[in-house]
């Protein structure tokens, strides 16, 4: 009898492995925790989108719970995300944009691209950081836009949203996270 039971070992192993691999099929590989979680917002020194003379750095992010949204006029999903960001701004959340790697050749044209995007789709941002080479994006570990970081008043990254924020996400994830860190 005992020997008979031993014959079931391969079947059991197969079932365990099968269940393990099967649940792996439904895991979204982009749902992974940011490497910057609970770390300080990276240091940077750039200018604002509107004014090439106005310098900004990580100190300008601090002071209040803030959503930092990385976008670009070349990014179609960023357009679809805009209504949700405007909604968040209406609810009194402070948003700062990072205009990430516009595609035009010169900086002046890149700024024009970014500004045209905001004119057309709305501007929920307190200000926009102009990041033509993607250097701030790189330090944030951004690998595609849109991406959104929740930064607390001390400048610590508390939440990272990869990809598009849906209207549902605003209610179920973003607002609770904002409240949690306020």
């Amino acid at each position: 009898m005992k020997r008979r039971l031993l014959l079931l070992v391969p079947l059991v192993l197969f079932l365990v492995l099968g269940a393990f691999l099967y649940q792996g099929l439904s895991i979204n590989p982009f749902d992974r925790e940011s490497a910057l979680m609970a770390r300080e917002f990276p240091a940077f020194e750039l200018t604002t989108l509107d004014n090439p003379q106005q310098r900004v750095d990580e100190g300008d992010i601090k002071g209040e719970v803030t959503l930092v949204n990385v976008w670009g006029s070349w990014c179609p999903t960023c357009r679809q995300e805009m209504p949700q960001l405007l909604d968040l701004a209406d609810r009194g959340v402070r948003l700062i944009g990072v205009d990430y790697k516009e595609t035009a050749a010169s900086d002046a044209e890149k700024r024009a691209q970014g500004q045209a995007f905001l004119t057309q789709f709305g501007n929920p941002f307190a200000f926009n950081v102009f990041d033509p080479l993607g250097s701030l994006g790189f330090d944030l570990g951004v690998y595609g836009a849109p991406e959104t970081f929740l930064v607390d008043a001390d400048g610590i990254i508390r939440y990272h949203h990869t990809g598009y924020i849906t209207a549902d996400d605003v209610e179920s994830i973003i607002m609770p996270e904002v409240e949690k860190w306020r």
Partner: peptide, 8 residues
């Protein structure tokens, strides 16, 4: 790289 993009 790991500092920015994680163990991934």
């Amino acid at each position: 790289m790991v500092q920015r993009f994680g163990d991934y």
